[in-house]
């Protein structure tokens, strides 16, 4: 029997993986992928809550799924802008390594 807690546990583990990636890795692209992992971990717990809170008619609460839809849209826009910033940064500094980017003004 799979419970709500199992889904929350798996989602928390995925979020921790993304969090560890942001803290430990030094490559901008990998940090960006870790951000995506964290967003998707949040999505998983939202969908689990949406399925858990069934109404009296036996339907899941679709508000959570609409929220996930919005998060996916914003994440897609964020990826596009973020990658454009990384490309602009690479043009200016020839690196994607965060430790090489240590001054505020080029």
């Amino acid at each position: 029997m799979v419970t709500l807690g199992d889904y929350l546990f798996v989602s928390g583990l995925l979020f921790t993986l993304g969090f560890a990636g942001v803290l430990l890795r030094r490559n901008l692209i990998i940090i960006f992928m870790s951000l995506e992992l964290m967003l998707n971990a949040a999505n998983l717990s939202l969908v689990a809550f949406s399925r858990f809170r069934t109404n009296s008619l036996g339907q899941p609460n679709y508000d959570g799924q609409v929220f996930v839809f919005f998060i996916i849209t914003v994440a897609a826009a964020e990826v596009a802008v973020g990658l454009a910033i990384i490309v602009a940064l690479y043009r200016a500094r020839r690196t994607t390594h965060v430790e090489d980017i240590n001054s505020l003004k080029f």
């Binding site: 029997m1 799979v2 419970t3 709500l4 807690g5 929350l8 546990f9 928390g12 583990l13 979020f15 921790t16 969090f19 560890a20 803290l23 430990l24 399925r51 858990f52 069934t54 036996g58 339907q59 899941p60």
Partner: peptide, 28 residues
Amino acid sequence: AAVAVIFFGQLYLVIGHLHQAKLPFAPL
């Protein structure tokens, strides 16, 4: 690594204390 592990530990404790987390999903 320690921050990430502590974060997960805290999350685990919160999920453990949530009594709804032990309930199965209602059938649709």
